[in-house]
Structures are given as structure tokens and as C-alpha cells.
């Protein structure tokens, strides 16, 4: 172990890099967020979240992210169960098919929904052809939820599939053997054992949904602002970095809360699975 020190030195480049590009930038967000344009300390930028328009955008983002996450769980869980029950040659291929859209460019995926949902878009054209009433979805919160669910569904499917696939089939058999019917087996065994997957799926869907500005911009028109849009505009259009940073601090607070919650649940979950 003589060369231990030399080996440890190999981490130097990354330590420098992480300090320069992860830590310092994050500190700068806090610096800008907690000062005004003259560099004086203030809470005003953080407290600006109380202004109606900002608060509304945060509230809406939370609601839409919550709805999207719930829909994702409801859609992904049965799918993941079916996928994990597949055995044999095709298993890999089928799972691959359901993960593939994740690798398609995010913006193009969202653009596709714009094309489908627009007032004179594909869905409405089909509906018209069938003499059914047109749907007005584009530029409504529903369209944004559509986009979020579509974009982030694979992020829910993957961890659920992984955790369900790891459950020993004999554990399920043991529950049946001890008298549980399929429904009882699901409630008492499968569901609790899949909690870590559910939690990591929730974080992977909730955080990007809460903070997105792309989906809302493309499917919500410029009328519906989420907190992500507000922050983005402060940086790219209004050049009010202090306000943008202040609101980001609020946003980070919510991310940290959701991280802590998932850490607590996951600890329980992992303590049980490992």
C-alpha cells in the first residue's frame, strides 16, 4: 500500500473540477439569490415567491407534477409487472421496446405531442373525420400533463421493472403456499417489496416535472407559466439574475424536501430488501 498516496492523488483533477463547476456555481446561486443588484444582503428575492404570479406558477407546477407522477405510477406499475413476468428470449426485446422512447430527443418527443394535440392537429383531424366533436387540449394544463406523462413514463417503468424483476419468484410462491390469494399476495408481498422502486420512480418523474419549462412552453403556449418558466425568463429575457436565483432557491427547497422524503422511505425500503 505504499503507492496509496499516489493513487489518491488521482482524484485531484475531479476535486478541482467539482469545486469549480459544481460547488462554486451552486454557491453563486445562493449568493445572487440572497443579494440585490447592489450586492447587499436581502431575502427579497426568495420572498418574491409570495407574489401572486410567482406563487401561482409554483402552485400549478406542484399540482401538475403531482398529477403526472400519480398517472405515471398507475400506468407504469401494471406494465412493469407484466414485463417482469415475461421470461425467455423475448423478455429483453420487449423491455427494450418500452424503454426506447426515453432515448429519443426530449424536444422532438414533446413536439410530436404538439403536432397531435393542436386544434388543427392530427387527433382533431381524425375526430372530425369520424364526425366527433373537436377536443381543445393544446395550451391547457391537460396538454402539459400529457407531455409530462409521455416524457417521464419510462423513468417510472425502469426502476419499477428492476425492483419487481429482482423479487424471487419463490417469495411469491411462498405467500401463495401459505394461503394468500393473488390479490393478498400483491398487497402484502409484491407492493411492499417494490417500495424502493416506486420511490425512485417518483423522484425521477416528480423533480423534472416540477422544474420543467420546456413542456409547458411547448404544450401550454406562453399563457401557462410554471415556476420553471418564470425562472427561465428571469435569466434569459429579464436578466434579473437575483430574482431568478432567489426563486431557484425556493425550487431547490422543494427538491430537497422530496429527496429527504424519498431517503426516509427508501431507507425503510432498503432496510427491508437487503
Amino acid at each position: 500500500m505504499k503507492n496509496n498516496k499516489a493513487v489518491k492523488l488521482l482524484s485531484a483533477p475531479y476535486i478541482v473540477w467539482a469545486a469549480a463547476f459544481i460547488i462554486i456555481p451552486l454557491l453563486m446561486v445562493f449568493y445572487y439569490g440572497l443579494t440585490n443588484r447592489d450586492g447587499q444582503f436581502t431575502f427579497a428575492n426568495v420572498l418574491a415567491i409570495q407574489q401572486t404570479e410567482h406563487f401561482k406558477s409554483l402552485y400549478l407546477a406542484l399540482i401538475l407534477a403531482l398529477i403526472s407522477t400519480v398517472i405515471c405510477i398507475l400506468l407504469a406499475y401494471p406494465l412493469a409487472m407484466i414485463l417482469s413476468s415475461l421470461k425467455g428470449k423475448n423478455e429483453h426485446l420487449v423491455v427494450f421496446i418500452f424503454i426506447l422512447p426515453m432515448w429519443m430527443n426530449f424536444l422532438l418527443r414533446t413536439m410530436a405531442w404538439q403536432t397531435l394535440l393542436e386544434n388543427d392537429g392530427v387527433i382533431n383531424t381524425v375526430l372530425q373525420f369520424l364526425h366527433m366533436p373537436k377536443m381543445h387540449i393544446i395550451n391547457t394544463p391537460s396538454a402539459i400533463v400529457f407531455g409530462m406523462v409521455y416524457n417521464f413514463l419510462p423513468f417510472m417503468v425502469l426502476p419499477l421493472y428492476n425492483v419487481l424483476n429482482k423479487i424471487d419468484i419463490n417469495v411469491i410462491n411462498a405467500a401463495r403456499d401459505l394461503g394468500a390469494n393473488p390479490f393478498q399476495t400483491f398487497i402484502r408481498i409484491t407492493l411492499p417489496l417494490s417500495v424502493p422502486g416506486i420511490i425512485s420512480g417518483i423522484t425521477m418523474v416528480f423533480v423534472p416535472s416540477l422544474t420543467t419549462f420546456v413542456v409547458s412552453e411547448m404544450l401550454g403556449g406562453s399563457k401557462i407559466l410554471l415556476i420553471g418558466n418564470v425562472i427561465e425568463q428571469e435569466f434569459t429575457q429579464n436578466s434579473n439574475w437575483n430574482l431568478g436565483s432567489g426563486l431557484s432557491i425556493v425550487l431547490m427547497l422543494f427538491i430537497i424536501i422530496s429527496m429527504i422524503m424519498s431517503a426516509i422511505f427508501d431507507k425503510n425500503g432498503e432496510g427491508n430488501t437487503l
Partner: peptide
């Protein structure tokens, strides 16, 4: 969140 990493 990516947006925070981006602005930082």
C-alpha cells in the same frame, strides 16, 4: 433539477 444546474 437541470434548470438549477443550468443557471448555476
Amino acid at each position: 433539477a437541470e434548470i438549477v444546474t443550468g443557471i448555476s
